[in-house]
Write a protein that binds this DNA or RNA. Sequence first.
DNA 1: CGCAAGTGTGACAATCATGTGGCAGCAATG
DNA 2: CATTGCTGCCACATGATTGTCACACTTGCG
Lengths: 241, 241
Amino acid sequence: MKPYVLVVEDEAPIQDLLAYNLESNGFEVGQAYDGEDALLSITERVPDLVILDWMLPHLSGIEVCRRLRRKPATQRLPIIMLTARAEEPDRLRGLETGADDFIVKPFSMAEVIARARAVLRRARPALDEPELRVGDLLMDLDAHRVLRGNRPLALSPTEFRLLRHLMEHPRRVFGRAQLLDAVWGINQEVELRTVDATIRRLRKALNGPGEPDLLRTVRAEGYALEPHDADKTRPEAASSA
Amino acid sequence: MKPYVLVVEDEAPIQDLLAYNLESNGFEVGQAYDGEDALLSITERVPDLVILDWMLPHLSGIEVCRRLRRKPATQRLPIIMLTARAEEPDRLRGLETGADDFIVKPFSMAEVIARARAVLRRARPALDEPELRVGDLLMDLDAHRVLRGNRPLALSPTEFRLLRHLMEHPRRVFGRAQLLDAVWGINQEVELRTVDATIRRLRKALNGPGEPDLLRTVRAEGYALEPHDADKTRPEAASSA
DNA sequence: CGCAAGTGTGACAATCATGTGGCAGCAATG
DNA sequence: CATTGCTGCCACATGATTGTCACACTTGCG
């Protein structure tokens, strides 16, 4: 499958040049013209790579970068920064902020393509094997399997889709209606309480004996998936204090 | 109207350079040469943005920053920190302290201007922030959670909505009728005294043992949320930099 | 000092939201 | 065609939530 690249650049000629060349080289391209635009777009579809201009209207590139790094869903999303030569002192800060690579304007298209491939190659494991990790949960999207710790979970299709949605936004509380839309489908005539029932079944499947419940009920609001790290410290080694 | 920028920098050449360039670019500029100076100046007139040197006589930049964050009036005041490359390890602490952006010396004037504009632009919309912060209270709207310091609070739905409303307008006093409208809903037939009861429950949940009460009762008027930073450092005492 | 208005406090019962078990229709499977 | 597992839904149980009240206490004032 083609890697999906989001290009965030406010100058239209550069934007188009990038888009055209990336598409010619086997990338699928999304375009955004300012920071807010970019964040919205990413919310809808998480790209495999973001090419981000440093100077942007509304939201600067660094701010976009910082926000992306803050969200779990985009924490490891590869980012390449574009920066003008005059802005070079910023280079350090860009890398500190979490950009994976830097390209200084003016640049050649060959360079962009090369860097993009390099960054993607580096991030490859996450792309070849699409998997979601939240706490001690590991969901393999290809194999359609879920592990809690090392115990495989037997989930029905609905339970799987529900858990997947929750894992894509850990900690976030979803109302019953939202979950119906996201998991069952926009215009399905299903009772709200059906969500409860499915949550219950998912709970039963998720939580083995003695394990803490990962599904948090927020009364009058909905449900959220709560990450839980099974082994933050060694349980066997001298774990005094 | 021109944005009013306060530049806090003890080295006169840099100070003047900044002031000159900012003024040339449509800013109104105030100057301060040490931390106490800066705080005094801010008391007299709250700027739209503070550019703050990291190393200052009398009061370090980080301390100034922390104090500003403690005062409700300056809680969200945008702050840009200036720091020398050698001081880089402190960068983390700076962001923790609450600076909005960082500029590493040596910097270009264009960079300062750009950052200043960016920070100001960003300061406008506080709507898309999924977090509310008031004093030592932190409300995560996505996760539907509240922390006081690092202690998680267990709030009922009504308590949560009430606290949220108060946190959206810290220090402001709301009458019982206003709170009923905002929290319970416009046309609800509920006794005014119900607010008292809920405030009481919220107090109990909010205030741990030994912690000061954040809910101020204004006799014959209503209630207000009082920001309070649980800060143990005594800046008056010999503080190290 | 006493009064009146305003607020804190604890208790209570009705209500509400969610957990729970079970059932029946349905689709997939052999 | 029989079996199996999944799914939506319901009725009930349970526990948390919440509006209200009576009463104690505080505060301001003449």
